[in-house]
Simulated assay, not measured.
Amino acid sequence: MMPNFKRSYKFAIKTSLFITVLLTLLVSVFLWMRYEFEWEPVAVFGLISYMFSFFIIQYRVEHFIYKRVKKIYDNVTLLDASTLRPNQITTDMATLTREVEKFAEDKKLEIETLKVRETYRKEFMGNVSHELKTPLFTVQGYILTLLDGALKDKSVRKKYLQRANKGVERLIYIVKDLDMITKLETGDLHLVMENFNVVEVIQNSFDLLEMKAAKKDITLTFDMDYEKPIWVYADRERIQQVITNLVVNSIKYGKKGGTTEISIENLIKNKVIVRVTDNGEGIEKTHIPRLFERFFRIDKSGSRKEGGSGLGLSIVKHIIEAHNEKIYVESVFGVGSEFSFTLEKSKSSLKGTKAVKTQ
């Protein structure tokens, strides 16, 4: 959008006035000395002189300033001279100064944004290399041990091959998650929208993760008995992944003997909100803004022992945003955390009876 400069005529008005007064005095003296002096022709001459002087001075001043400013734009490569037009140039230097200052502020903000992105890029590349390096070196270590002679021992050979296989599985897990995030960001991963019962999807996640939760004595439960189905309109497979990732995250950072509870509530007429609440470690406020970044871990050593790619929450955020929905997080350190996201109700369910508890 091109700047709308305010035109100023003060310089032309004053200068024209000075020239007109001077010329009128000279003409008046000339007429008085050589001819009979009359006010009417002198006044007409003064008016015509003023008008011509004003237009000529205004045009020349604007043309002069335009040439000088355009030269600055041409010399400074960051400025785009193609956006400059003669009718933007004015003798009002305050307006022009403000526009240049605004341009400088915008460029400063752009540079700062690029610096932040560069920092993020470096950190991301470092995290990727670290996440890939660990299982690669693990697999390489077991294979080298086998090649050095352990291959002949059947018990050692089987154990080391199983461990190497786990390392390869983790590599595949990381690569698959990275591929999914890339597809979500570029729009290559198309959502298959359908109507489905979200209660059933949550129960499937509970059944899938029951053994994992049992190892830490964590109870997976609903906040109430949902006797009637709650129909939503979304990609069933992706929402299943969202719920699974959130439950896995709550188990990973949950306390022994704790609870992971899921509730489904009416938000507005055509929306429900799904809440995943735990009474685990909680998250410090300083970490919350970065929770959904790729490979970001609060406890780097502890969470790596639990496994996973470090991309779970990032995938959750991208899937929810691909549905044009919102995800929220609230946490009190040492008390627990709550992750929640919205979903659109299916149109058929809007016509039926309410199957969800009201907030």
Rank of each mutant, 00 (worst) to 15 (best):
Y35C: 10
Y35L: 14
E36R: 13
F37C: 00
V42I: 15
F45D: 11
M51V: 14
F54M: 08
F55A: 12
F55E: 11
I56T: 09
V61L: 10
V61P: 00
E62W: 03
I65C: 02
Y66V: 00
K67W: 03
V69T: 07
K71C: 04
Y73L: 08
Y73C: 05
V76W: 09
T77V: 15
L78P: 02
L79H: 02
D80G: 01
A81M: 04
A81R: 11
S82T: 12
L84D: 01
N87F: 09
Q88P: 01
I89A: 00
T90N: 02
T90K: 01
T91N: 07
M93A: 14
M93C: 09
T95P: 00
L96M: 15
T97W: 08
R98Q: 07
E99N: 13
F103V: 02
K107D: 10
K108Q: 14
K108G: 03
E110R: 00
I111Q: 05
I111W: 00
E112H: 04
T113L: 15
K115T: 00
E118T: 00
Y120K: 11
E123A: 10
E123C: 04
F124L: 15
G126K: 14
V128R: 13
V128C: 07
V128W: 10
E131A: 13
T134F: 08
P135F: 07
F137Q: 12
F137H: 11
T138R: 06
T138V: 10
V139F: 12
Q140S: 15
G141E: 10
T145S: 12
L146I: 10
L146D: 13
L147S: 12
L147H: 09
D148P: 07
G149H: 05
G149E: 06
A150C: 06
L151S: 14
L151G: 11
D153N: 14
R157D: 06
K159C: 03
K159A: 15
Y160P: 01
Y160A: 08
L161H: 03
R163P: 01
R163S: 11
R163V: 11
A164P: 04
N165T: 13
